[in-house]
Amino acid sequence: MSETQPRSRAPRHLAQSVATHTVLIAGAVLMVGPFLWEVVTALKPFAETTQLPPTLLPHHWEWSNFSKVFESLPFGRMFLNTVLMTAGRTAAQVVFCAMAGYAFARMRFRGSALLFGLFLSVLMVPALVFLIPQYEIIQSLGWLNSLQGLIVPGMFSAFGTFLLRQFFMALPHDVEEAARLDGANPWQIFWRIALPLARPGLLALTILTALWSWNDLMYPLVINTDPQKMTLSAGLATLQGEHFTDYSVLMAGSLMATAPMIVAFVLLQRHFIQGIAFTGSKG
């Protein structure tokens, strides 16, 4: 009995493992295949993209697709704008949301429930609805085609406040209580004690905000129409207008615009995945 058990198990285990990997590999091909096709297309001359049957690898490696992107777009400038927008929004949002989230989680003040409810209502409204009034506000501030126009509204987040409030609520009270008895004021307790404990939550918000800012389309597209002030996603959208069917140039542009975030993800994958997983557990 004890002899047959492992022997009969091994092949079953092997069969199960083969089946699992077959399914997972098939899935992975579906997930990654399009990206490989993107790379291959970006390296083909235009004529080769409209050739039947399509070539699997480029016959002629056409590197000029990338330089065509540079000719159509001030790519370096757009890259810089996107980095600055992402960094500015993310840094401010993490600090502001942590402050507000902590206050909602731990402090008693008049109107807190009403205010929090109002914040949550923002989550129910499609982002597009904010666009026209936001445009008018930015215009009246004289911030159209400016970096601060890109950054400022994105510094505040109902989602981030909610996320960090949930996190602070789950923290144990006793350390903060001890600090309070030692005479620390609420800000010191927040900044020196609660914030370091909230690192996983802050990390999650940092990653999500950075990702969403990097990929944000409609708001930057509407606010900044000067190519020198555009972000990469807006630039990419205008590239599609210019090279509508020249997919080799479009794929080269897409590749260039998405590569930084993909590289960041591959390098920091553990943090990305923890961050996303974290939002799921605290919802």
Partner: peptide, 15 residues
């Protein structure tokens, strides 16, 4: 596998 399945999540929707 986790990285490969996650790639589309970090890709710009425009792209």
């Amino acid at each position: 596998y986790r990285v490969l399945y996650f790639l589309p999540v970090v890709t710009m929707p425009v792209a």
